[in-house]
Design a protein around this nucleic acid. Structure first.
Lengths: 268, 268
DNA sequence: CGCAGAGTTGAGGCGCTTCAAGAGCGGTGG
DNA sequence: CCACCGCTCTTGAAGCGCCTCAACTCTGCG
């Protein structure tokens, strides 16, 4: 039914069947089995997009390790040394920053095929926390090797620049959301964005299971959890969506879209 | 008195003495005189930070053009083809995004030594407008040449990655500001940030001339111009600053800082 | 001198937050 | 198996912070 949840709920189950008894620290397990980008179905939305078969082989030589992160565990934390960037193989993460006085802001939610860790390049230290919201696995790409290789493989260099630029542009969009939109618009934009990304990964674009709490959604959108909850309820009353806890069914995607694009006249 | 304003006001004057009569389109003038990074006093806060003399020479070969932008003109606009990134030689810019329905959000203010244009790398099209807030000049760095050169000059590659990563981190900070801070905190953080950057450029860290309107500040901070104005007035009443139009004197920098860092208990 | 753009200030209202109570759900242990 | 606990989510009521609308001042410029 929820196509998205199949593997995910299985992963959650896996959490409690083998995470506890088998391993002391499941979050730091690294399965060093060789990684084959060429046989990864996320290839085309991950870092090696558009590389030739030959170049792909060179990249595979750099992506020599995977790492599993149990739900609730951090892949890295603000202040950690920066060594690598990470591609999500499966699972779901949040990225968040903390201010000196303890406030936290979720800066992004990341899913399979997306990259984590670019915040650390500038200072050799990570500046955000990357926390798994479900049991996840990432490919570890040591950055110094990536830099070396991208001098030789033009397509990789190009792709690395693209990915970083797109992250800048994505954040511009979030700034616009936070700076100019009302609660209703923010949440509608959030839902549409999520469903689009899920659709690109072959999941349903009308049914999804939220991997984060209302509070985390609120943090991302600059709202309090009660406002998120109320707005969900209002969307449901208006027939735009159907919400049952974290299960959301989109009933009127265009209606949602019209809440934040074009129809600016909604504001009175 | 206002060290910062010396050259700037001179530039503004230049605007009205030669922009109108002498040139049809001052914003597109490119003075192709050779550019010498090695003799540029912004060298150490610009792209070629930390390069050897030899490598610097190679970079200079790529930075072969300057461009002047008159106040109010755009260096580039959203939708324009992406060709180059730009280093500001002097002047002041705002970067802003527009949503389909016409809302605008200022995503940054940029000063000498800072880089513009990285928003365009990902899609080969710019996604933001870069508008000069005073008469300005930039060094044009064709990106394809920069990519080619950065394969050869490791320091340049490294620096390019650093700069992009730092932009991501900066935007994370703005997201935190927009998502969690109150008007007072936002404006205090804004002022402290500006003065720090001015100080790094050798200007006074206590007296500054704002190059942007209240509305532009408000757009950046997710506030309305009236709120910006009122908050300035309140800061003045509290003896934190002295405001006279766009002239701002910082009287109590620590007081301002305490408004947004540590003292979270300010919220009641 | 008058006009336009930018900034200030006041009054009132709305949207979101805050505070609070209760319901739903999953996990745990008797 | 069911009672219980903790966490998440929902919903209501009241308050406050920022926005909206509006009038006025200030400054620079023709």
């Amino acid at each position: 039914m929820y196509k998205q949840s199949e593997r995910s709920s299985a992963a959650v189950l896996a959490d409690h069947t083998d995470a506890c008894p088998n391993q002391a620290s499941p979050s730091h397990t690294s399965s060093t089995g060789h990684v084959a980008c060429s046989s990864c179905n996320l290839r085309e939305m991950c870092l090696p997009t558009g590389l030739s078969r030959e170049d792909l082989g060179k990249v595979e030589a750099v992506v020599n390790q995977r790492r599993r992160i149990a739900r609730g565990q951090a892949l890295y934390r603000s202040g950690d040394d920066f060594n690598a960037i990470y591609a999500i193989r499966y699972g779901f993460f949040k990225a968040q920053v903390a201010s000196p006085d303890g406030r936290e802001q979720v800066t992004g939610f990341l899913m399979a095929g997306e990259l984590l860790g670019m915040d650390g390049i500038g200072t050799e230290r990570h500046t955000v926390d990357a926390v798994a919201l479900e049991d996840s696995e990432v490919c570890v790409m040591p950055f110094s090797q990536l830099e070396t290789l991208s001098r030789e493989v033009n397509g990789l260099q190009r792709q690395l620049h693209r990915v970083m630029s797109r992250e800048i542009v994505r954040e511009n969009g979030v700034m616009m959301l936070l700076g100019t939109m009302r609660a209703e618009e923010r949440l509608a934009a959030f839902l549409i964005n999520l469903t689009q990304r899920l659709k690109a990964r072959g999941f349903s674009s009308t049914e999804l299971v939220l991997r984060m709490t209302r509070e985390e959604i609120g943090s991302y959108l600059g709202l309090k959890l009660e406002t998120v909850s109320r707005t969900f309820s209002r969307f449901q009353d208006e027939g735009l969506i159907e919400v049952k806890q974290r299960h959301v069914k989109i009933l009127d995607a265009d209606g949602l879209r019209s809440l934040f694009s074009s129809e600016a006249a909604t504001a009175h």
